[in-house]
Design a protein around this nucleic acid. Structure first.
Length: 121
DNA sequence: TGAGTGACATATA
DNA sequence: CTATATGCCACTC
């Protein structure tokens, strides 16, 4: 239990948490990014795990963040099980024009949205 | 306070 | 490309 934790409960902002979601919300429609890219943009290239962990709250927080646009580095929909339905994630992506095959984003490199580049770094 | 955990990444073979 | 091993940082209990 640290000060940060207490602040967490009270404010719930000013966290990795908030930063991650902030970035994720800026992902353009029809594009995807990776945990590592987000982590790197936040200055913690090795906190990629936390990025994913933050997504846990992503769907409990308002407004919801487009967590379906965040996949692992190879474009695999590792977090699809955390959505309501097992197919919700890829379904959303398909609706946005992102083709998904075998839980994997097609042309991932092409549709990859790098915050460190797009948002300017 | 300290150990366990996670929707991962990187390095190495 | 796969498989294994290790680091990683914030969070939870």
């Amino acid at each position: 239990m640290s000060k940060r934790t207490l602040i967490n409960n009270a404010v719930q902002e000013r966290d990795f948490f908030a930063d991650v979601m902030d970035v994720v919300r800026q992902i353009p429609r029809g594009r995807v990014t990776s945990y590592g890219a987000i982590a790197k943009y936040l200055g913690a290239p090795r906190s990629s795990r936390m990025v994913g962990f933050c997504m846990n709250n992503a769907h409990t927080v308002r407004p919801k963040v487009p967590a379906h646009r965040v996949v692992n580095r190879i474009g695999l929909l590792t977090g699809k099980h955390h959505f309501g339905s097992p197919t919700a994630m890829e379904d959303l992506l398909k609706k946005e024009g992102v083709k998904v095959k075998d839980d994997q984003v097609v042309d991932f490199r092409k549709k990859f949205w790098d915050p460190t580049v797009e948002l300017g770094f």
